[in-house]
Simulated scan of single mutants.
Amino acid sequence: MSELILETSTASMRRNFWRGVWRVMKRKPSRMAGVVILLGFTVMAVIGPLFYPENLPYDPNAKYAPISWEHWFGTDGQGKDVWAQLVIGSRYVLLSALVTGVITVVVGAGLGLFSGFKRGRWDTVLMRLTDMKLTIPGLPLLLVLSTVWSFGSAIEMGLVLGLLGWGGVARAVRSQTLSLRERGFIEAARGLGLSTTHIVGKELLPTMAPYIAMNMLVAVTGAVYAQVGLFFLGVLPYEADNWGVMLNLAVFGGGAMTTTAALPYLLAPLLAILLLTLGIVLVVDAMDEIFNPRLREE
C-alpha cells in the first residue's frame, strides 16, 4: 500500500513538472524562439546535407562572388557556394557537440548521483577521481592528440571532448544530490527498502532532470567552441567539413580581415555560431527557472 502511495505521488510530481515546464516556456516568447532555433539547426544538420553532392561543384570564374539569390552567402576562393558549405558543415559540428553533451551528462551525472547518494568510501574514491580529471588541462591535451589523431569523424571528436569535460558536471550534480538526499520523499523511499538503483533512477534523476539538461546544453556550447577553435587554428587537418575550417580559410586563405571580398565567407559561420549560441542561451534561461523555483514569476 505504501509503495502504491509513493508511486502515485511520484507520478503526480512528474505531471506537475511537465506542466511547469510548459508554463515557463510560454511565459517568455524568447524561450520558444530558442527552441525553434535549436530545432532549425537540428533539421539543417540532419536533412540539409542530403540536398548537396558529396563534392560540391566549384566555378573558378566565380571566386568570392557577392551575395545573391543564387548564392545566399556568396562563394569561396574556389567558387563553391558558402551556404552549401555551412549546411554540410553543420552536421559535423552539431553531431560532435551532441555526442560531447551526452557523454558529459551520462558520465558526470551518473558519477555525481551515485557518489552523492552512497557517500562513504564510494564518494571519496569517485570524487578523488573527479579531482584528478579536473586537473588535466583540456586544450594542451587536445593539441597533443591532434598530432596523432585527425578527428575526421564527428563521433571521435565528441568522444574526446566528452571524456575531457565531465568533471565539472560530476561535482555539480553531487552537490545537488547531497541536498536532495535528505528530502522527505527520498527518506520514504529508503525507509521502504527500495534499491539504490531504483532511488537514483526513479526518484533522484527525474528531480534533477532540468539541472542535468541545463548542463548538457552548456556542454554542447563548449564543444562547439572547442572544435571550431581547433579547426580555425589549423591544428587539425582539413579532412572534415567544419565551420572552423571555413573560418580558417576565410581569414588565412582569403584575407577576410583585410579585404571585403571574402567577408561573407567569414561571416557565415560566425553568424551560425552566434545564432546557435543564442538558441542555447534562451533555452538554458528557461531551464534555470525550471530548476530554481525562486526564479519563477508569480
Rank of each mutant, 00 (worst) to 15 (best):
2 S>P: 01
3 E>L: 13
6 L>N: 07
6 L>Q: 08
9 S>M: 14
11 A>E: 11
11 A>T: 12
12 S>Q: 07
15 R>N: 09
18 W>L: 12
19 R>P: 00
21 V>P: 00
24 V>L: 08
26 K>N: 07
27 R>H: 11
27 R>Q: 06
28 K>P: 00
34 G>N: 03
34 G>A: 13
35 V>E: 11
36 V>Q: 02
36 V>F: 09
38 L>G: 04
42 T>H: 01
42 T>V: 03
43 V>C: 07
44 M>Y: 06
44 M>K: 06
46 V>H: 12
47 I>K: 07
47 I>R: 03
48 G>A: 09
48 G>I: 03
51 F>Y: 12
54 E>R: 05
56 L>G: 10
57 P>L: 15
60 P>W: 10
60 P>E: 13
63 K>Q: 12
64 Y>Q: 04
68 S>F: 04
72 W>S: 13
72 W>C: 12
73 F>W: 14
74 G>V: 09
76 D>A: 14
76 D>K: 06
81 D>G: 09
83 W>L: 14
87 V>A: 03
88 I>R: 08
95 L>M: 10
101 G>R: 01
104 T>N: 11
104 T>A: 12
106 V>H: 01
111 L>D: 02
113 L>Y: 00
115 S>T: 10
120 G>L: 09
125 V>F: 02
129 L>Y: 01
131 D>N: 11
134 L>I: 05
137 P>R: 11
140 P>K: 14
143 L>K: 02
144 V>L: 14
145 L>M: 13
147 T>S: 11
148 V>N: 02
151 F>M: 14
151 F>K: 04
152 G>L: 04
156 E>A: 14
157 M>A: 15
158 G>Y: 03
162 G>L: 10
162 G>W: 01
163 L>E: 04
163 L>F: 12
165 G>Y: 00
168 G>E: 05
169 V>I: 10
171 R>M: 07
171 R>E: 06
177 T>Y: 03
181 R>H: 14
183 R>D: 15
184 G>F: 14
184 G>W: 13
185 F>E: 11
187 E>Y: 15
191 G>Y: 15
192 L>R: 11
200 V>H: 09
200 V>P: 00
204 L>R: 01
206 P>N: 09
206 P>T: 12
208 M>S: 09
210 P>F: 10
211 Y>N: 03
220 V>C: 06
221 T>G: 04
222 G>M: 02
222 G>A: 09
224 V>P: 00
225 Y>Q: 07
228 V>W: 03
229 G>T: 05
229 G>M: 10
229 G>I: 12
232 F>M: 08
232 F>A: 08
233 L>W: 06
234 G>H: 08
234 G>M: 11
237 P>W: 13
240 A>S: 11
242 N>E: 05
242 N>F: 04
244 G>M: 05
244 G>V: 02
245 V>Q: 01
248 N>G: 09
249 L>M: 13
250 A>H: 05
251 V>I: 14
251 V>D: 05
252 F>M: 14
253 G>N: 07
255 G>C: 06
255 G>L: 04
256 A>F: 08
256 A>I: 06
257 M>A: 10
262 A>L: 05
268 A>Y: 09
268 A>W: 11
268 A>G: 08
269 P>Q: 14
270 L>E: 06
270 L>V: 13
270 L>T: 14
271 L>A: 15
273 I>C: 09
278 L>I: 15
279 G>S: 06
284 V>Y: 01
285 D>A: 10
285 D>I: 10
285 D>K: 04
286 A>G: 08
286 A>E: 05
286 A>M: 05
288 D>E: 13
293 P>R: 14
296 R>E: 07
